[in-house]
């Protein structure tokens, strides 16, 4: 998805994991996914660059859809869709 498409998404669940290092953001994502409705978009905010790849691979394993990420002000907005 392009940056514009990602920014236009309606986010059902947002997780702010900024300021926490690995494995903080991944654990926050894991905790928060239960509160995201199936089919909804979850956004993970992280100040740890590794989160992009971690969440992308985690989505692959958990069969969620990884949508992409946007870098802004030294942080990353990571988007995914809960599929089940």
């Amino acid at each position: 998805m392009t940056k514009e498409e990602l920014e236009a998404l309606t986010v059902a669940k947002q997780v702010d994991a900024r300021g926490t290092a690995c494995p903080g953001p991944l654990l926050e994502a894991k905790r928060a996914i239960a509160a995201c409705p199936v089919g909804g978009v979850m956004e993970v905010l992280s100040s740890d660059e590794g989160t992009k790849e971690d969440v992308s691979r985690w989505c692959g394993k958990m069969q969620h859809a990884y949508l992409g990420d946007i870098e802004a002000d030294g942080c990353w907005r990571v988007f995914m869709r809960r599929t089940k």
Binding site: G19, A21, C22, G24, K30, S47
Partner: peptide, 20 residues
């Protein structure tokens, strides 16, 4: 140094491990 970088302490990791 780990605290400065937002990394969890060993005690926090143990607590998370219990939760998970």
């Amino acid at each position: 140094v780990m605290k400065l970088h937002g990394a969890k302490s060993l005690e926090e990791l143990m607590k998370d491990a219990a939760d998970f």
